[in-house]
């Protein structure tokens, strides 16, 4: 993630006001409240004063040019940024289901059980398909075979992969096609029944057909999970998401319903971005 912001661009975007928050508090699954974030002990912030709420049971897309901080924000939501030693939330609060997730008594492990994540590059373990899906349950201590079988089947069905792999659950996950591997990763994520699924450009490594399958899958999963998806593909955002947040160089420029953002953005930069004039 590049955080080398030069002063000219910063002054160019500085006067943009924060959007009013259009979601009612009670529906909010995730509340992001004035959050700033830094990768280098707080010397430079890659996210600056971000505030918006993500509603439950909806798909929210985060868009913006590369380096705008959308992936960083996503990784703040399940504290995957903890893995970088020098990273730090320098300001504000992120609350999920009302709990400040950066509070000292929050265990990131418990958090991540509730907030699953699907990565840009599909990353199944070099194990069997079955073991991949059962992985999350096993590390939670579930050893009961019928229970695992049931969960694996349910997750694979939910990920629309069951039909393709049911006869070869014991074979290596690495033998699947790219799209299948990514759906397997989604199955692995939903097997532990999280409340929220974060997706970090889940289709960027896939061909258009595989992408379409994943998008269908997202559409199906929205009923059960709150989904936050980072994408740089604007068509994909329009196809899968209910709400869209547009980021630019570490700041939230505009956040609204997807229809509104793509048909009638209220900020000029958003319009320029979605019409392809920069980024």
């Amino acid at each position: 993630m590049s955080n080398s912001m030069n002063d000219t661009t910063r002054t160019a975007t500085a006067p943009v006001p924060n959007n009013p928050n259009p979601i009612a508090k009670q529906d909010a699954m995730i509340e992001i409240d004035d959050v700033s974030f830094s990768y280098d002990h707080g010397q430079t912030n890659v996210l600056r004063n971000i505030s918006f709420d993500i509603p439950a049971g909806k798909v929210t897309a985060l868009i913006g040019p590369s380096g705008c901080g959308k992936s960083t924000l996503l990784r703040c939501l399940n504290r995957m940024n903890d893995l970088v030693d020098t990273s730090k939330v320098t300001n504000g609060q992120i609350r999920i289901m009302g709990q400040d997730i950066n509070a000292s008594d929050v265990d990131p492990i418990e958090l991540r059980k509730q907030v699953g994540m699907v990565f840009q590059k599909y990353n199944p373990f070099p194990k069997s398909i079955y073991d991949n899906v059962a992985y999350g349950l096993r590390i939670q201590g579930i050893k009961n075979k019928p229970k695992l079988d049931e969960a694996v089947e349910r997750s694979l069905r939910r990920a629309a992969l069951w039909g393709e792999v049911k006869d070869r659950l014991g074979s290596s996950a690495l033998g699947l096609s790219g799209g299948q591997q990514q759906r397997l990763c989604i199955a692995r994520t939903i097997a532990v029944s999280p409340r929220i699924v974060l997706m970090d450009e889940p289709c960027s490594a896939l061909d258009p057909i595989a992408t379409a399958r994943i998008e269908e899958l997202i559409a199906e999963l929205r009923e059960e999970f709150t989904i936050v998806i980072v994408t740089h593909n604007m068509q994909q955002a329009t196809r899968v998401s209910d709400r869209t947040a547009f980021f630019y160089i570490g700041e939230l420029i505009e956040y609204d319903s997807t229809a509104k953002i793509f048909s009638n953005p209220s900020v000029k930069q958003t319009e320029e971005y979605i019409t392809g004039r920069f980024g």
Binding site: N78, Q114, G116, M117, F119, N123, F125, R188
Partner: peptide, 17 residues
Amino acid sequence: PKGFREASLALGATKWQ
């Protein structure tokens, strides 16, 4: 690969797990 660690942690594994 880093992806293995991320996948595992994102599924709620402890560091040791």
